[in-house]
Amino acid sequence: MQVFKLCIQIIKKNLPVLSIYVFVFLMVSLIVSASITKEQQKISTFNSSKSNIAFISEEDTPFINGLKDELGNIANFVDLPDIKEELQDALFFRSVSYILRIPEGFTERFMNGDDVTIEKIAVPDSFSNTYIDMCIDNYLNMAKLYVTSFDNITQDELVGYLKKDLSKNALVEVKTNGETSENHSYINYIFNYFSYSLLSVIILGMSTLILVFNNRDLKMRNGCSPMSSAKINLQFVLANLTFTFSSWAIMILLCLAVNFKNSFNMNIVYFILNSFIFAFCSASIS
């Protein structure tokens, strides 16, 4: 097993460089583990989805405050300075998916029955775009109905009526079928990043081995050795497979060690199985 032993020696020599990828992977896993709190709850009640939005109002009136309160049921408000670049960045990186701007004098014109519009900037054709549009248009359409039906209605009266109407909600029944909703984003993220690190480690290790064995002088020396080329190749392949398996096993153990607080379920088994196949896929890519 001289060839096999040589391969192991080469890998040992390159351990510091290989361990960098493992170390960075471990650090990222720990950072993500610390920053993402895992929510695990059995679904029994319906909770409306909330989108992150930036609500910029150039006026402060009871009518607009009513709209903001209503939007609060389906949106989380993210405080952002009214600076173009800040808003652009927030939309790009999905800190918010919708930016709503109420112009100055909007309420006055609305109450006078003028045609008014509100400017929005959103992620085009997105779910939250449709969802929040529905809510805003509903509020303003209902308000318009009251404004046209009742002469001289005040803002406070209008908001009072709207509040009562908007409290009517559909009855929602959640049939869970015994399933639990688990936030897998954390473990998803770890395994996503795991594949990157594993691929790098395997490429780095195997390319080092192949480069050494492809050295012209070494090839010629091996060619005249009493060992058959089939035996050399077999040992070389075995060493590569051992390296692949060991890299995968070490990184999976680290992954599970970081994730030890969380429950071990079938999804994690599938993730591990997936990564195992990916490890050998990476070996063939390398």
Binding site: S48, S49, Y131, L166
Partner: peptide, 22 residues
Amino acid sequence: PIKLVVSKSDINQSIVKSFIDI
């Protein structure tokens, strides 16, 4: 009132609920 039966709370279900609410 009108009843909605769902299997989970998600954006799709929220849109349906919003529609009935409206």
